[in-house]
């Protein structure tokens, strides 16, 4: 039987987009944050297209400088709603593309699950952070989304790039600019040897 720790949760750090270098550098793993402002959605297909545009030196559908990308493919908005369920998708599928975007000014990524060494190195080199949203809590996350507009590649359906206006979007810092990783450190705390 484990002893329950009764430590109180800290007040969240309030952030607004676009993120500045200073704001990003002040974050540490395990920090609870709430983000407000515009963020952009993108997952597998959109990332492939973003990197193709960069390779061809063509303009991107949004400015990467200080931007935050949310890895999400929302469910359709029922009548009278801004968006359907909108929780994060698993991030490692974007690892092949993320370092290119970080080099060009991307400051924050929101998803779930662990990132590759290459992505973590790029975050340290160019001051960016990775936030986890609660996977599978799509109904809850949707409450913090106040506007949603498709700005590119509508034909991709759930994978289209959307600009979201979020208010107090609740997240946890998983990778910071110091190269630390909450998944590694959090798991170590609760690991137990089984005979």
């Amino acid at each position: 039987m484990y002893i329950k720790e009764q430590k109180a949760m800290k007040e969240p750090v309030r952030l607004s987009t676009p993120l500045t270098d200073d704001a990003v550098k002040a974050l540490s793993i395990g920090d609870s944050v709430v983000i407000s402002g515009y963020i952009y959605t993108g997952r597998d297909a959109a990332h492939k297209r973003l990197v193709e545009l960069i390779d061809r030196r063509e303009p991107l559908p949004f400015d990467l400088e200080g931007a935050v990308i949310y890895y999400v493919g929302p469910s359709p908005a029922p009548p009278g709603r801004v968006i359907g369920a909108a929780g994060p998708t698993t991030s490692y599928r974007m690892d092949a593309y993320a370092p290119r975007l970080i080099e060009l000014g991307l400051k924050g990524m929101i998803g779930k699950g662990a990132r590759s060494r290459e992505v973590r190195d790029a975050m340290v080199a160019h001051s960016a952070v990775y936030f986890a949203a609660i996977g599978g809590a799509g109904a809850l996350m949707a409450r913090s989304i106040k506007e949603a507009e498709v700005i590119a590649w509508e034909e991709l359906g759930p994978e289209a790039v959307r600009r979201l206006l979020v208010e107090d979007f609740p997240l946890t810092v998983v990778n910071d600019v110091h190269g630390r990783d909450l998944y590694e450190e959090g798991v170590k705390r609760y690991q137990k040897k089984v005979s």
């Binding site: 493919g73 359907g84 369920a85 929780g87 609660i134 809590a137 799509g138 109904a139 809850l140 949707a142």
Partner: peptide
């Protein structure tokens, strides 16, 4: 939060998860 999410989905008639 997962318990809250399940309640919101039911009350607001939207999916538990976008996937």
């Amino acid at each position: 939060k997962l318990l809250l999410n399940a309640r919101i989905a039911k009350e607001e008639n939207i999916p538990i998860c976008q996937d």
